[in-house]
Simulated assay, not measured.
Amino acid sequence: RLIDWFQKEQRILPWRENQDPYRVWVSEIMLQQTRVDTVIPYFNNFLTKFPTLEALADADEQEVLKAWEGLGYYSRARNLQNAVREVVEEYGGVVPNDPDEVGKLKGVGPYTKGAILSIAYDTPEPAVDGNVMRVLSRILHVEEDIAKQSTRKLFEELVRELISIEDPSSFNQGLMELGALICTPKTPSCMLCPIQEQCRAFEEGIETELPIKSSKKKQ
């Protein structure tokens, strides 16, 4: 149901035009801490300037930072270019499809790794971010604190059990899209939700109480 819903209702976004791992990778790095609407023009401009891995690897760093200007968190751009250079040098310009190899690339954390592998390569790898943890906290009625690293690991294991082997790309993107459009933080649109019948939080009337998130204490 989630996959059917995603395929019908997904937003038309430029990085969804194909499964090119480079495009998926650039979009996921840009989308860290930045809203989708903000990213779209930057993504289009960046891909026009650096249409391939090789183009980005060969580019002058200042040129790359200029194209990133306004998105902030410039270390993302530097890490991306360094990692792309590594792919060109070590992997012949092809983004690796092995979880360990992708996970070692600079700036690629567990979520970005899962997104690249599932969306570009149809590998059933979890891609768990705040959206996904919120959605699954509600569907499965999980009361673990999502601010804790151990909870992310728990959700990664849950996704491994649930993920579609036939279409992991649509499954992961469906969870993300559900969190962005329907299962929103404050006022989820439960009546429009394709998996409302499976949702334990909705059944118990506690959807707005989940997920549990402690505020991070100052060190």
Rank of each mutant, 00 (worst) to 15 (best):
11 R>C: 07
13 L>Q: 04
13 L>W: 07
14 P>K: 02
14 P>R: 01
15 W>H: 09
16 R>D: 07
16 R>C: 12
16 R>N: 12
17 E>G: 14
18 N>R: 00
18 N>F: 04
19 Q>W: 00
21 P>K: 04
21 P>V: 05
22 Y>R: 06
22 Y>S: 10
22 Y>I: 04
22 Y>G: 07
23 R>W: 03
23 R>Q: 15
23 R>H: 14
23 R>G: 13
23 R>N: 13
24 V>C: 13
25 W>P: 12
25 W>M: 08
25 W>E: 04
26 V>H: 08
26 V>S: 09
26 V>G: 13
26 V>P: 11
28 E>K: 03
29 I>C: 05
29 I>F: 06
29 I>L: 08
29 I>N: 03
30 M>V: 09
30 M>K: 06
31 L>D: 01
33 Q>H: 13
33 Q>K: 14
34 T>L: 01
35 R>G: 12
36 V>L: 08
37 D>M: 09
37 D>S: 15
37 D>P: 10
38 T>R: 10
38 T>W: 01
38 T>Q: 13
38 T>S: 11
39 V>W: 01
40 I>D: 00
40 I>H: 05
41 P>S: 06
41 P>R: 11
41 P>T: 10
41 P>V: 06
43 F>V: 07
43 F>Y: 15
43 F>M: 06
43 F>P: 08
44 N>R: 15
45 N>D: 15
45 N>T: 12
46 F>T: 06
46 F>K: 00
47 L>C: 13
48 T>D: 14
49 K>Q: 13
49 K>S: 14
51 P>F: 12
52 T>S: 11
53 L>T: 07
53 L>K: 00
54 E>L: 10
54 E>D: 10
55 A>P: 02
55 A>R: 12
55 A>T: 12
55 A>H: 14
56 L>G: 03
57 A>V: 06
58 D>W: 09
58 D>N: 15
58 D>Q: 15
59 A>Y: 10
60 D>N: 14
60 D>Q: 13
64 V>A: 03
64 V>R: 02
65 L>R: 13
67 A>K: 05
67 A>E: 14
67 A>N: 05
68 W>G: 10
69 E>C: 08
69 E>Y: 11
70 G>S: 03
71 L>P: 08
72 G>K: 01
73 Y>Q: 08
73 Y>F: 15
73 Y>H: 14
74 Y>H: 12
76 R>N: 05
76 R>P: 10
76 R>G: 01
77 A>D: 04
78 R>W: 05
78 R>M: 04
78 R>Y: 06
81 Q>I: 09
82 N>I: 08
82 N>C: 02
82 N>F: 09
82 N>V: 07
83 A>T: 06
83 A>Q: 04
84 V>G: 02
84 V>T: 12
84 V>I: 14
84 V>Q: 03
85 R>L: 10
85 R>D: 09
85 R>A: 11
87 V>L: 04
87 V>W: 04
87 V>K: 02
87 V>M: 05
88 V>P: 08
90 E>G: 00
90 E>F: 05
